[in-house]
Design a binder for these strands. Structure first.
Length: 456
RNA sequence: CGGGGCGUGGCGCAGUCUGGUAGCGCAUUCGACUGGGGGUCGAAAGGUCGUAGGUUCAAGUCCUACCGCCCCGACCA
């Protein structure tokens, strides 16, 4: 339940225990007319985000907590795979983009600005140029590679038509990693590390992400996979073997220094493709009728190996042992962090609201005091509140003087995995009632039994 | 960027066709009753009707221009 404890220094809010009466949680009973997509509606109603402009959002406390939890999982799994975190700016100079040729190619999607000296700048839509320049400037030897660097930063693409709330905003939060290797073969090893890291990251978020062969697109290159989660509201059509639905990415501990190819093979041997490169004939040939999955999917990650396109243009060239020199072989690996918040909701909800997987839930426990102001109930609720907080679990305490129905509706909407319900009936018998948001089932237990559950 | 739709208290909407004192539900504030799934009654506060210009004795309503937002398509993490 609290497996994510220990984010340690990256914590943004040291207090994981909040009182709803004091918390900024502007929930909406009705759906704002601007939102059509389910996750967008729930995010607005649950007080997670507010729109500033088309495709640009403010993240309110509840939404911000989820965003940071997802970010932290991605960070831990990138680090585990041996990638190193750095931070590049949002605003970039135009020069490096002119060198790669993408200043023209990117077109109107690139937000261009001029500074006071009339210099052409841009709000970064991605970072291949910048990272390649950084790397190329300071590394000169084949001994300096392999390396994988990543950062987690806001980006901006001036989409013609932003939609689906945070799933396709103009401003979005993204993890992108870049690998540098001496040869295509070595690059493949880096690619595999990121591949496995992605499987683990998404699995930890409670998602069944399926790697699908993808078109590398304008970014160039030939080795590429998209990671797709299935959801009715998905933006593209996908086709795969049903075996993928049952694969468990966390089953085997990844040995990043060892051979990852068997894991990759296991995850790529069956048919899986997005509509862009879907081959109906091959699909029918390789997948039995009863195992064919045709569904809609949301892309939450994309990995590419593209070789020397940017290293040549921007001079990321190193000396070789034999005296020659070589442009580095590169790959880039993205995860849409802000998009994932919407994506997880699309994959996990019911008619009452969001159902957060425990690992990304803004709070693990929602404490509901049905009789706020009643001495006995208040006393029990307060003691549970402070005890849960001291155990390190995130808890939100609904201490408002609302009616039972309103409190349940709010907890269901914001999707807290466990609701602890305190009322006169249970207080009298010195037990508590714990409701599981996902199953809807509730059971009575002693206080200690519940605390032990949290410690487990 | 092509096609469609919508802008009226915080949110959801009516009123626009047919011009004549800006309304309803929810939320908010106060009081009372209530108290395990968004309860009831009473009182109160809150609106330049997206913006600008025009027609008219009179514009939320008619005309023109602009801005913003949403949906379908093309495009994308």
């Amino acid at each position: 339940m609290n497996s994510l404890r220990g984010g340690g220094e990256m914590r943004i809010n040291p207090s994981h225990a909040v009182r709803m009466s004091k918390y900024f949680l502007p929930v909406l009973r009705e759906t704002p007319q601007e939102a059509q997509t389910l996750s967008h509606r729930y995010m607005l109603r649950a007080g997670m985000i507010r729109q500033a402009s088309a495709g640009i959002y403010s993240w309110l406390p509840l939404g911000f907590r989820v965003l940071k939890k997802i970010e932290q999982i991605v960070r831990e799994e990138q680090d585990r795979a041996g990638a190193q975190e750095l931070l590049m700016p949002t605003i970039q100079p135009s020069e490096i983009w002119k060198k790669s040729g993408r200043y023209e190619d990117y077109g109107k999607e690139m937000l261009r600005v001029k500074d006071r000296h009339n210099r052409e700048m841009l709000y970064g839509p991605t970072n291949e140029e910048l990272i390649t320049e950084i790397f190329g400037n300071d590394l000169r030897s084949y001994r300096d590679v392999p390396k994988i660097l990543y950062h987690i930063q806001w980006k901006f693409r001036d989409e013609v038509r932003p939609r689906y709330g945070v799933m396709r905003g103009r401003e979005f939060y993204m993890k992108d990693a870049y690998s540098f290797d001496i040869s295509p073969e070595a690059g493949r090893l880096s690619y595999n590390k990121m591949f496995v890291s992605y499987l683990r990251s998404f699995a930890r978020m409670g998602l069944k992400a399926i790697p699908m062969k993808a078109d590398a697109g304008p970014i160039g290159g030939n080795l590429s996979h998209e990671f797709i989660i299935l959801a009715e509201t998905g933006e593209s059509e996908v086709f795969c073997h049903s075996d993928y639905i049952d694969l468990d990415a966390l089953k085997d501990e990844a040995e990043y220094d060892g051979d990852l190819q068997p894991i990759i093979d296991r995850w790529t041997k069956r048919y899986a493709a997005t509509d862009e490169i879907h081959d109906e004939e091959k699909f029918h040939r390789e997948v039995p009728v009863n195992r064919r999955v045709c569904a809609r999917g949301i892309e939450i990650g994309h990995i590419f190996f593209f070789g020397t396109k940017y290293s040549e243009a921007l001079g990321a060239i190193v000396d070789l042992a034999d005296g020659g020199e070589k442009a580095l072989e590169m790959g880039s690996y993205g995860i849409g962090i802000s998009r994932l918040v919407g994506g997880i909701i699309e994959a996990s909800h019911d008619a009452n609201g969001i159902i957060w997987p425990e690992s990304v839930a803004p709070f693990h426990v929602g404490l509901v005091n049905l009789r706020q102001g009643d001495g006995a109930c208040d006393k029990v609720a307060e003691s549970i509140f402070s005890k849960v907080a001291s155990l390190g679990s995130d808890i939100i305490y609904d201490d408002r003087t609302e009616r039972a129905g309103a409190k349940f509706a709010t907890m269901d909407l914001i999707g807290v995995p466990y609701q602890v319900i305190i009322g006169p009936k249970v207080v009298e018998r010195n037990v508590i009632e714990v409701k599981n948001r996902k199953t809807g089932k509730s059971e009575e237990m002693s206080h200690d039994a519940f605390f032990n559950l949290l410690k487990a």
